[in-house]
């Protein structure tokens, strides 16, 4: 079976001339279906750049990115929109919910862009909200929700389309320890349900829950090690 995502010799350069910054200097990695991968690294190591490229929010300067064995770099704007909608669920550090719009409407949004009918959309959005434990807050607007709740709505929005890949860019970076626990529990459940999750973090205990830990430094992979894969799987399957 082919990997969900595969990048080869990925580079990203910002700026011109003297102000050139090499954010990524040749990153290669592959993620198999059902893996739970954590990417760690100090600030400036290129984690967010990598994540934005993986989420098709940004384009690389060089190298190749295969998502579900499709070369993403060759896609048109329209096809990229389709890829973002169908294959990727992205969770931002800053939540990025649409303001003054109810939680349910926010979760429904990617389904609307996928052309799904209102009734089915509503049902699936409610199911996704139940999954993150916020079914009772469906009609609340983002500013009526706590940070942890907002992030759980954002996670519901990321998984509602059943994407092949869930990407999370420091999802717990703005949250207190209690909310962090809530979010990580949701990711654990997703992992248990066989979803592929890639997240960025700089907190070691967050990284410790993944089955694979990739450490980035200066735009390159410094280490890439599986973390007690058998035990983790056994525990997850037992749930």
């Amino acid at each position: 079976m082919h990997p969900v995502l595969e990048v080869r010799a990925l580079t990203k350069v910002y700026g011109e001339g003297d102000t050139r910054v090499h954010a990524l200097r040749g990153v290669s990695l592959a993620v198999e279906r059902g893996q739970y991968v954590a990417i760690m690294g100090p600030s400036g190591s290129g984690k967010s750049t990598l994540m934005n490229i993986l989420g098709c929010l940004d384009i690389p300067s060089g190298g190749c990115y295969l998502l579900d064995s499709v070369d993403v770099s060759g896609l048109s704007d329209r096809q990229l929109a389709l890829v973002r909608n169908r294959l990727i669920g992205f969770v931002f550090q800053a939540f990025n919910l649409i303001p003054r719009t109810s939680a349910r409407a926010n979760v429904e949004l990617p389904l609307a862009y996928a052309g799904i009918h209102a009734r089915e959309r509503r049902e699936r959005a409610m199911r996704a909200l139940e999954l993150v434990g916020l079914a009772d807050r469906a009609d609340h607007e983002p500013n009526q929700l706590s940070g942890g709740q907002q992030q759980r709505v954002a996670v519901a929005r990321a998984l509602v389309t059943q994407p092949a890949l869930i990407l999370a860019d420091e999802p717990t970076g703005n949250l207190d320890s209690h909310s962090t626990e809530d979010i990580l529990t949701v990711f654990d459940e997703l992992k248990a349900a066989g979803r592929t999750v890639v997240l960025i973090t700089h907190e070691p205990d967050v990284g410790a829950r993944a089955d694979r830990l990739i450490k980035l430094f200066d735009g390159q992979i410094r280490s890439d090690e599986p973390k007690r894969p058998a035990g983790r799987h056994a525990e997850a399957n037992a749930l």
């Binding site: 989420g55 929010l57 704007d77 329209r78 929109a81 389709l82 890829v83 973002r84 909608n85 169908r86 990727i88 992205f90 931002f92 990025n96 919910l97 649409i98 303001p99 949004l109 990617p110 862009y113 996928a114 929005r157 389309t161």
Partner: peptide, 19 residues
Amino acid sequence: TERTREIGIRKALGAPRRT
């Protein structure tokens, strides 16, 4: 500024430009 951010969010969720 606010609207551009909103458009960014919508694009990240897979909204086509024309929509």
